[in-house]
Amino acid sequence: MKYIIAESVDDVLKAFSETEGKAMVLAGGTDLVLDAESGKKPSDAWIDIMRIPELREIKKEGDRIIIGSAVTLTEIARSELIKKYYPSLAKGAGTVGSLQIRNAATLTGNIISAQPAADAAMALAPLDPEIVVVSNEGEKILNMEEAYAGFGKSAIDSSKELVKEVRIRIPEENEKASFIRLELRKSLSLPMLNAAAMAKVENGVIKYIRITMAPVGVGPKRARAAEEFLTGKELNEANAGEAGQLALKDANPRSNPLRGSKEYREATLPVIVERAVMEVGAQLGLA
């Protein structure tokens, strides 16, 4: 095994060509190291991207916030910029694993490991992010749904593609996002369920809302029926409750021996979706 410490995006692209698809991009490494040991992700080389200066930044560019793919979850959770515009993302990023894990792991890694209930990716999902992927073929932009290929399976091929950054739009005054986690334990555990929402509300009426939930399918799943129902309606407890029930239409949770049976998840999904919607309202001073 070879260990390549990349110092620029070009270094990574060069390493992709030289290793002919037999290398893997290594960011935080908190998942990859375990996967490699269990034989799940064999490779001849690791390309360490954590020293690439341009990937290590969180910055404001025009109406966008850019989060480099080598930014750690702790850096996101503590970023003044993120806390100002998207406290829910800071919360989600600050919930993954433990502080030690967040000090190494990245938001992009949380997306690429493709665990449906990954808290940081989940908090990001309703913000409609642009995931910027570069390879020797050029640059492409994926939306959240396009990034997931299946359960635990990413659409991004880390042997030839590098996520450079994640871009999110700076919200307007009346746009807020939320993240709710139903958990057995705060640290060192995946949630039983999580839900996130982002909405724009004008005069108490929802202009648009995006609601995501997990683990109820592949990746963060959109609650389309609930979103449709809420659009154009007042943000209040009754409507949020109704939306919670409608969320079940887009959800197909499985039973887990630890983190809740299908029945339990179906019984509580409406509650946490309702709470995610109401939390948006609370941030807007409506509830």
Binding site: G29, V33, S98, Q100, A104
Partner: peptide, 23 residues
């Protein structure tokens, strides 16, 4: 990375030394 017994400080941050490749 589930227990923290291997925690060290690297460049000022607490990290699980069990989850990091040596390089």
């Amino acid at each position: 990375g589930e227990c923290g017994a291997c925690t060290i400080i690297m460049d000022g941050n607490a990290v699980n030394s069990c989850l990091l490749p040596v390089m």
